[in-house]
Amino acid sequence: MIITYQFDGNDELCLRFGPDDTLRLLILPPLFDEANRVRHLVVECARALAELGVSSLLPDLPGCNESVRSLDTASLSLWQAALITCSDQLGPVTHVASMRGGALLDGALGDRQRWRLAPVKGGQLLRTMLRTRIASDREAGITSTSEALMETARAQGIELAGNSLSPCMIRELDSAVPSDGSAIRLVRFADDPLDADGRLKGAPLWLRAEPAHNPAMATAMAQDIAAWMRG
């Protein structure tokens, strides 16, 4: 079901799945171009959760998807404020599931229990997008460096991987890290050497050049989330 929440004078869209009388999960996908590559996966995970009796919310962030706001006016702090508003208006939200850069935002929702898939620092996302920009410039016969691009980005904003990012977004992203907490379940892929509480089979879809879907992965994510929420 498509519903809305009101933030900063605009109606922002939100997908709602599952029954209304159960624990409610807020889902935070990856950010920027990574979000486009896994949109199908995230939606199918939410549908699988609904079949398991878990309700969830998948909100559009201001400046993303169907939002009327321009992305170049957004920042991480603005997105966090929007999530607080969404939770207040459409909740109660009891749990949060975030993926990759979405974990940079989940701390805004306080001490709610959190499930994270392969969280990443903001600086790492930024460096990945800078490398994509440098490669694109090279193909166009333009010589650019990450240092020069960052100087421009901090002063006047920049377009990276098809995203127009403001100076405020660049500064916040460069220093952002997932927040700490005791009630966090950390999930990674099977070949990831970093510590984790759980593992998923398969390869990260956000690394693909084009959007893709993996039904088995969506089901496995939903099963892990549902088991975690039910303790």
Rank of each mutant, 00 (worst) to 15 (best):
V120H: 10
G123C: 07
A135R: 15
L105Q: 12
D195L: 11
R100I: 09
G157P: 06
G123D: 11
D174R: 08
R185C: 14
S175V: 08
A82W: 09
G91T: 04
T152I: 11
A148I: 02
D106R: 15
R185L: 09
R100W: 07
V120S: 09
D174P: 04
A183E: 12
A176L: 02
D191P: 05
Q156D: 07
E151Y: 08
D180E: 14
D195C: 13
Q124G: 02
I142P: 03
F189N: 04
L104Q: 02
A183Q: 14
A148N: 12
A176D: 13
Q124L: 07
L125Y: 01
G110T: 11
A82H: 09
L165R: 02
G107L: 04
L126M: 12
R112A: 13
A155G: 04
L186A: 11
A97D: 00
G122I: 01
A176I: 04
L125K: 02
L125P: 03
L160N: 03
G122M: 04
G157F: 12
C168Q: 15
D191T: 13
L200I: 07
K121Q: 13
Q156R: 15
S87W: 12
D197Q: 04
S144Q: 13
R171Y: 05
M150I: 01
A190G: 00
E139G: 03
A135L: 13
T143R: 15
T128G: 09
R100K: 15
L200W: 11
I170V: 15
R185D: 01
R154Q: 14
G198N: 08
Q89N: 11
L149A: 04
S87C: 11
A183N: 14
L105C: 04
A153Q: 06
I84W: 00
S146P: 06
A176H: 00
T132R: 15
P119Q: 12
T132E: 14
L109P: 11
L83R: 00
I134F: 01
A190Y: 07
A140N: 12
A82L: 02
P178F: 08
E172M: 09
R127Y: 13
E139K: 10
C168Y: 06
D197K: 06
T145Q: 05
L186E: 14
P92C: 13
S87N: 01
R154I: 10
L126S: 04
A140R: 14
G101F: 08
D174K: 03
D180C: 10
G107Q: 08
S166A: 08
